[in-house]
Nucleic acid binder design. Sequence first.
DNA 1: TTTTGAGTTGTTCGA
DNA 2: GTCGAACAACTCAAA
Length: 450
Amino acid sequence: MTTIHWFRRDLRLADNPALNNAWDQAQADGSQVVGLFVLDDRLWGPSGSPRRDYLLASLRALDESMGGRLVVRRGDPTEVLPAVAREVGASTVHVAESFEPFGRARDEEVEAALAEDEVELRRTGSAYAVSPGRVLTRTGTPYRVFTPFRTAWLDHGWRGPAQDPGEVDWAGLTSEDLPEADGEPLRPAGEEAALERWHEFLEDVAGYDDDRDRPDLDLTSRLSVPLKWGEIHPRTLLADLKDLRSEGAASFRSELAWREFHADVLFHSPEAATLSIREVMPDDAWTPRSQADRWFEAWTAGRTGYPMVDAGMRQLLAEGWMHGRVRMLVGSFLVKDLHIPWQRGARHFMQHLLDADRSQNQLNWQWVAGTGLDASPYFRIFNPVTQGLKFDPDGDYVRRWVPELRGIPGKAVHEPWKLPTPPEDYPDQLVDHGRERKESLDAYARFKDG
DNA sequence: TTTTGAGTTGTTCGA
DNA sequence: GTCGAACAACTCAAA
């Protein structure tokens, strides 16, 4: 009997246990696999054009690796899945399990809809080396602190990569054309590109520990986007890292552990997607709406007058990506200098990041805002100038993204207001960092005492 | 049950 | 210029 593999955020053929199960089942029945992707308008609309373009490119790459047999349907998965199952007489739909609030709710609805036709939704694997919910303390509670989580996560371990599925016999089925992209994807998309990038990065991983914090050098893995879409699985990465002993390899493994920790926290506390886990500021600490609107607009446009902040915000708009170090800085600036709640920044990031992932995005924002369980302490407020001098020592990153400042050589670019004649087309500082820092510290103290 | 050690990523101030 | 302390207790996780 024909089986269905429903692709979601696992846009790859290698190391895909759910797909292997679908193919095994089909082979046992002497049948074929339908490889299905559902364009769900609930996700399609809000995802923003750069991410849509990337997804389309990734789907084209997937389709190509399937010999043009990817089946695309547009609509509500609770209707599309039962319809396709009826069309081919399938008894099972295979998926990788979703763990985020939206995905879990959707899958439960699809499962119920399929059950009416006695079709099973079978979940195998997930986007993580260790699925959320699996790593628990000795008393059976979820971890709330990263370091012990990582220790337990490493102890828990994971399977090796799934075996190569070989030549899957894909069922040819009527498929809708993919919508036209608005433009070229901002990154090379697809499984092959992801593997290529990974192998390239592996050559340099030993230096990752020292250099990852330098946005001017940009020696990060750039794998956040493929990981978000499942074009590559962390298990594949961890298997290749297994025998490496460098500090860099350990750091990168740790970053993967953070990814799994955040997914685990959101799994146990779905409300953390919208609510602060711990409130740390009094209600009156936030900038009033009309001024906040103007400040927020300047922040999104990269016109705060702080070069390092502006460079990051402009990189986000131009590339659909921002260096991690700079994400922390612009986040700190929004919450602690502009006194705008983290949720608003998180929404902006979700709209523009190619790697936008609910658990990673929201939990990292909570970390910066100091509202997370294991968050940055309230007094840790990034200084936009110091961060620039430290991590972009020659000013190359700023000049790359802020053309108005290109005439300023060296590190002076981080403090254009100190020049005898500051560039006229670059904005003045929106706020005084020293003052706003004190404002935040005072507000925190008020909250704590009150 | 109680105790103990530890906790991603920073900045400022004063000696 | 460099360096350590202060920032603030609190909660977590394991022994």
